[in-house]
Design a binder for these strands. Structure first.
Length: 257
DNA sequence: TCATGTTTAGTCCAGG
DNA sequence: CCTGGACTAAACATGA
């Protein structure tokens, strides 16, 4: 019997919904977040079926990203400019598949209005901060330094429309407490392709990510802290169930401890 | 200009 | 039959 390859679905349509395919792609990435183009690439790399009719399924996939609350659009970090945002999964959506099976979803993941509003406020604030960061960087000389008005405390509070009902900061977004650390080996199981193009990202496990650019203080520190808090809340608070690529398909992988 | 993102609307299908 | 989820199509907005 020929050994099944990871492409043994061949030209058959894989039994996964677009939501499942997107979740796979996101979870296979080191940062648990990917730009749209990388999600496309993940799917076409692994499922030849999706090398055809790209307009159709990519439109459907984009529709799913926007329509479903389980996907969260995270603005690019200011030191990583480019087109489009990064997409990740909402921490509360990690258990939306029954027993971690990609073939079954429990039910549509829907955020409550308040949760959605506070999440949107956080993301909008982050995007605003990034714009300010880039504008300031573009208009300042390298040696001019940063003024105190851009101290992190100020930047972190620069919401587009301050609302007293909002939480003071990312605390509104972040789940209650830290979770116990567990083994997490999905990267090896999914055999991600080595990528030279994207810079080595900060590990989501690191509370203080290290930016590659040696930039001066307040902007960068604020951006670092803001992104670290946001991404830690989104990606680290709830570790996903482990999935493995075995016998040419994804299946649930049980923790042995 | 094109990729990305949002929104609306329609069909199909499975399950209650 | 009704409802919800998945999928598809299309129009439109936005930003690099």
């Amino acid at each position: 019997m020929p050994r099944p390859t990871r492409e043994s679905y061949g030209d058959q349509k894989p039994p996964f919904s677009y939501i499942a395919l997107t979740a796979m792609a996101i979870w296979s990435s080191p940062e648990r977040m990917l730009p749209l183009s990388e999600i496309y690439r993940f799917i076409t790399d692994r499922f030849p079926y999706y090398r055809r009719n790209t307009q159709r399924w990519q439109n459907s996939l984009r529709h799913n990203l926007s329509f479903n609350d389980c996907f969260v659009k995270v603005p690019r970090r200011p030191d990583r400019p480019g087109k489009g945002a990064y997409w990740t999964l909402h921490p509360q959506a990690f258990d939306m598949f029954e027993n971690g099976s990609l073939l079954r979803r429990r039910k549509r993941f829907k955020l409550h209005k308040g949760d959605k509003d506070s999440l949107n406020a956080e993301l909008a604030a982050l995007a605003t901060f990034n714009r300010a960061f880039l504008a300031r960087q573009a208009s300042s000389t390298p040696s001019s330094g940063m003024t105190s008005m851009y101290a992190p405390q100020v930047a972190l509070c620069s919401r587009p429309s301050p609302d007293p009902m909002d939480g003071p900061d990312t605390a509104a977004l972040l789940p209650a407490g830290p979770r116990p650390r567990r083994a997490f080996t999905i990267d090896a199981l999914l055999e991600p392709e080595p990528r030279q193009t994207s810079p080595s990202p900060p590990s989501p496990q690191q509370p203080q990510p290290h930016y590659p650019m040696p930039l001066p203080a307040p902007y960068l520190l604020a951006a670092q802290r803001y992104h670290a808090e946001l991404l830690a809340g989104l990606q680290q608070s709830c570790l996903p169930p482990l999935w493995t690529w075995r016998d040419s398909q994804f299946s649930h992988y049980t923790l042995n401890s």
